[in-house]
Design a protein around this nucleic acid. Structure first.
Length: 475
RNA sequence: GGCGACGUAGCCAAGUGGUAAGGCGGAGGUCUGCAAAACCUCUAUUCAGCGGUUCGAAUCCGCUCGUCGCCUCCA
């Protein structure tokens, strides 16, 4: 079975065929760095990261570019409000992006270009568009002549004439047509600016992604992604700029994730109904947050609530419990152990992910593996010589860890209870207490035994008695 | 107004022609000195409603109702 990807441009699932396999070029519209990102933004980063990981798992070599928009109206406005140089503000939130994205196990892109580092490429692109008659200058602004590009509206399914009604013209803009959009904006006093053939100015928002995508990945890339709200006008305009200049396709597959909602309404900064990633990570484990963001199909809306995050926390806990318990009871797993069941489950996982990255179905497969693992582990511990149960459980542990790894969840889930610096010493103490409790139990001194268990519990060390002996887990 | 998406159990959510995955929560049971964890059983005769196509539909078509999104900065 081949990987299928839903392509916004055709509104269909299509077989994924990159231009030059095994190479895949991928560009995701990254954050505008004027504030901490919110959970809705995080969904895009996590979903795209999972797509990238799955492509690599499937044997592709992914060159992945995600930009930082580090100069734009919102950054300038925020900098003025805070009385902070605009470039320092942007740099601060670039750092914040890395810190929180790292926390969610979102891998760094191959390249994280910044808009301000690609002014030259942008100007070259604008010059080319002017030369081709697709752009024109008015008072130091340069606009894209939308009606001169046939095919405008094809990505978003818009009809040019329908758009006219809602088109907006700001005061002072001298567009030939209300639909035209700014490629380059003449500098206003006090704003950052760069020298251009049309005087001092700065780039329009849409321009940077076209320039950086083509510069780093070539004129036609395999996958271009972003949130659903970028389809129009941002991606439509990027496409017009790029295809207009090169007369080649800009992106083969357009991938857009659905919104994160609150009470079914889109989470957005303008509505004010958002939670920053900082607030959310203060209250919930990164593993639970990432799990939650992957717990619905990426194109569907996902509603945010404390209850949903708590549920995700419990679900992640079930997986962690099953694997950690099994590993403690089984002892060291034999590397590379596998079984028919593990092979079957991994195939089902692949089938789910091949179907337009159906992470929800893929997670269902992982839980099926968790149930089977618990069953095998219990059978093994009740019948201590069940070598075949041990092999089966070992294989499932391996499979579960691999599958979680593909979704970027393995490290997040299992790092929580990792040993600290003086881990060996602490572990020795816990083992000592467990032996003392065992002696108390054998002497029927249950009060003392329970005291040891309860006190360990209040320190975050939970005991489980199994037929094979007592194990402990750190919450 | 134009274009588009969605409506599946108490909640979240897969399933897009062959008779309802999975998770959370809830009820009962097994194991245990008691727990914890786990396991077992149960928890949607039915997929917003009404019609139609079909041997057969949650899945296809039509209409109705409801929710949301884009059309302006927005992941």
């Amino acid at each position: 079975m081949t990987l299928k990807i839903y392509n916004t441009a055709t509104r269909r699932k299509e077989d994924f065929q990159p231009q030059n396999p095994p190479q895949v070029t991928m560009y995701n519209c990254g954050p505008t760095v004027y504030d901490y990102f919110h959970v809705g933004n995080a969904r895009n980063f996590v979903v795209v990261d999972a797509v990238r990981r799955y492509l690599e798992h499937s044997g592709y070599t992914v060159k992945f570019v995600q930009n930082f928009t580090d100069v734009d109206d919102k950054i300038i406005k925020r900098a003025n409000e805070k009385n902070e140089p605009w470039d320092r503000l942007a740099a601060r939130f670039v750092d914040a992006y890395y810190e929180k994205a790292d926390a969610l196990a979102v891998r760094r892109a191959t390249i994280h270009p910044k808009a301000t580092e690609h002014i030259k490429e942008m100007l070259d692109l604008v010059v080319k568009l002017v030369e081709k008659g697709l752009a024109y200058e008015k008072n130091g602004d340069v606009y894209y002549r939308v009606r001169a590009f046939k095919g405008y509206g094809e990505l978003s399914g818009k009809n040019i004439d329908d758009l006219l009604e809602g088109a907006r013209v700001d005061v002072g803009e001298l567009k030939e047509d209300p639909l035209d959009f700014a490629l380059w904006k003449a500098a206003k006093p006090g704003e950052p600016s760069w020298t251009s053939p049309w005087g001092e100015g700065r780039p329009g928002w849409h321009l940077e992604c076209s320039a950086m995508s083509m510069h780093h990945l070539g004129e036609t890339i395999d996958i271009h992604s972003g949130g659903h709200d970028l389809i129009f006008p941002h991606h439509e305009n990027e496409r017009a700029q790029s295809c207009g200049a090169t007369e080649k396709p800009f992106a083969k597959y357009w991938l857009h994730n659905g919104f994160l909602t609150i009470n079914t309404e889109k989470m957005s900064k303008s509505l004010g109904n958002f939670f920053t990633i900082n607030e959310v990570l203060d209250r919930f484990q990164p593993a639970a947050v990432r799990f939650y963001l992957l717990s619905a199909h990426y194109r569907h809306p996902l509603d945010y609530s404390d209850a949903a995050l708590e549920e995700a926390t419990n679900a992640v806990g079930r997986i962690r419990e099953a694997v950690v318990t099994a590993e403690k009871i089984l002892g060291g797993a034999v590397a590379g152990t596998t079984s028919d069941e593990a092979v079957r489950l991994e195939a089902e996982f692949k089938e789910a992910m091949d179907d337009d990255f159906n992470t929800q179905r893929a997670i269902g497969v992982i839980f099926e593996a968790v149930s089977l693992l618990n069953e095998k582990r219990q059978a093994y511990s009740r019948n201590a010589n069940g070598e075949s149960d041990k092999m089966a459980a070992d294989a499932l542990v391996g499979a579960i860890r691999r599958l979680l790894g593909i979704l970027g969840l393995e490290d997040l889930i299992f790092s929580a209870g990792a040993a600290d610096a003086d881990g060996a010493f602490s572990e020795g103490l816990v083992d000592l207490l467990i032996r003392a409790r065992k002696m108390a139990k054998e002497a029927k001194q249950f009060q003392l035994a329970d005291y040891i268990r309860d006190e360990l519990n209040s320190l975050g060390v939970r005991l489980q008695d199994h037929p094979t002996g007592t194990i402990w887990l750190k919450d």
